[in-house]
Design a protein around this nucleic acid. Structure first.
Lengths: 189, 189, 189, 189
DNA sequence: AATGAATGAGAATTCATTCAT
DNA sequence: AATGAATGAATTCTCATTCAT
């Protein structure tokens, strides 16, 4: 007993899982993840009782990271449009700075191994952001769109913007700006 | 000439694959697909030389189905906005009418088992639609967005619209209309 | 009914089997043999009721070919040593002229799919040769060796001679002569 | 350090493989080998990464065993003929004492799953024996035979001697003596 | 707690043989 | 008789998970 679970090891496993899932999808072998984390195959299972639990934890971990960043970048006050643009910028910036996390997240998002519970938990992560998108909901509903539309749309539009940037890194700034403008035309004022 | 390869059987396998991939993703077992198609495990491999070939064929098959419908719904002439709305409507209508195909397609689209070649083939399927989105490219480029933006954006916006409809089937009409209006604000005129 | 079994087709299958077994051993697929013979997969089974029967027939076929040649080259009369040398020469000549048959035969000889019955049948094939080796048996028995030693030894010594020739084709004549001389020292006078 | 790889288990697998390959050839199922070794099907693959590796390891293992014995029986000094006879005796003795190893070796020797590399490794196993056959090479070359003839011929002549002994075990001594005498007439003095 | 060997239930694929045409 | 699609048992190998050390 004695030795407590090491959070370093847990982190190492999650980081390794990010790389490996980004590269090979959710069918990545747990042995490959353990090896990449520098721990034994069996050790992985003292931190996560099975592969699904690991994948769900990874999903939450990456989402937390993303939301933490976006929340940090959300200075209260100012025009709604400016705050939204700030979130948009940091959202895309995160994807460019963390391509492996972004890729892993994409894989996890479509996997049926991520439970509804996990998805629910992840969407409740960032209250400041939630609040901001709630402010948007008035505009959005006036247009006949569902309340949560602003958040959902930003997520998918940011993603396609990121993929255009991946193809033309030199034009990143233009894509970011034009992408947000399109977004705002769709839902803003 | 012995028993000829039966296109019914090929179709049955593709249909079974649609169901099974929709339910379990691309990790679905070929045995499960064969069983669901009512053929022997080995028979699957007389129609598709291996699993990857089956998945790629399935991707093309579903895409063809979708594009065929959208092309049919594309009456030449008339305002660009009206033609775009027609495509939008039939795109979403197809997803609602073929939820399994839509779900399977989503899984296939993110799988790295679908080759670049297949993706290329599938995007060249519907020339009338390609032409329509090319008409959009002028507007889109004026807004600083990439040439292919109109098609890409419609695809993701239609998809989120479909998911809202799935949650509130009664409001389908409203979602479809409001969704397209948002789309057109983003890229149109 | 009508059409009788075509001996051409039977021959084609045996020839194809020779090639394919030479190349891939007795684990060669019957489908590969049929294809190489230019007949349908199923047709093979109207000529040979199963794979083992085909392999045994092939063994006998090749052995017959070999024995026929050696019997032809056996002119009656003359010294025993000269007749033996004649058989030796034609034995090795056959292997050099029919490398695929030789290779297939080698594979078949060690396979446990060739029955004892087949092996027995094959050794009784050439009576003139049997007679010659029986003449040898006197010498051989005087040396404390088993009666059938002369035939057995020639078979293995010729085979290693052939493999040396395969490595140094230019020295074929010398290998053939020196090989026989060694053989005759072992069992002759 | 968890359970260490057990050399007992490795040995058990190789022994099981010997039996099974002797009985069924190289097409023996890995499952059958594992079962016969008393380990799980998967365990075989922690000791040998695939079937070919197992077969090659088995080939080397049996050859080592054989060469070790023959090397042990090779007392330095004395006449060449006596040393050769010693090797001959122990070669045949090994085959009689280890019929399964002998049979498995025969199957492996003709299989194309045994690589050139493995064959090369195996022939370099016993340097004392190599040296002895090199001493023979002078005699052999004088007779117009290839340098390596002595070793090659002993191998095949011993093998046919062993098979005669298998048919008449009571006459083992006579076969062994007469066989070697024939061998020595062929290549000696 | 950490390790990694052991396990055995699948997974994809092959293939001899059958059988509808 | 000839064809080749259909069959399903068998094969090699993988992998999440367990468990002895």
């Amino acid at each position: 007993m004695a030795r407590p679970l090491s959070s370093e090891k847990r982190t190492a496993i999650l980081e390794a899982a990010t790389q490996v899932v980004a590269a090979s999808g959710t069918s990545a072998a747990t042995a490959a993840i353990a090896k990449s984390a520098g721990v034994a195959e069996g050790t992985l299972f003292t931190y996560f009782s099975n592969k699904d639990e690991l994948l769900n934890a990874l999903y939450l971990d990456i989402k937390s990271d993303l939301h933490a960043l976006m929340t940090r970048s959300l200075k209260p006050g100012g025009e709604l449009v400016d705050r939204c643009r700030g979130v948009w910028d940091s959202f895309i910036g995160w994807g460019l700075a963390n391509p492996e996390k972004a890729k892993a997240l994409k894989q996890l998002a479509v996997s049926d191994r991520i439970t509804e519970e996990t998805r629910r938990l992840s969407s409740g992560l960032s209250s400041p952001m939630t609040a901001m998108f709630q402010e948007c909901s008035v505009m959005v509903v006036q247009k006949g769109l569902p309340k949560t539309y602003a958040g959902t749309l930003m997520s998918v539009m940011a993603e396609i913007t990121a993929s255009y940037i991946a193809g033309e890194p030199a034009k990143a700034r233009r894509h970011i700006r034009a992408g947000f403008d399109a977004y705002w035309r769709a839902i803003g004022q």
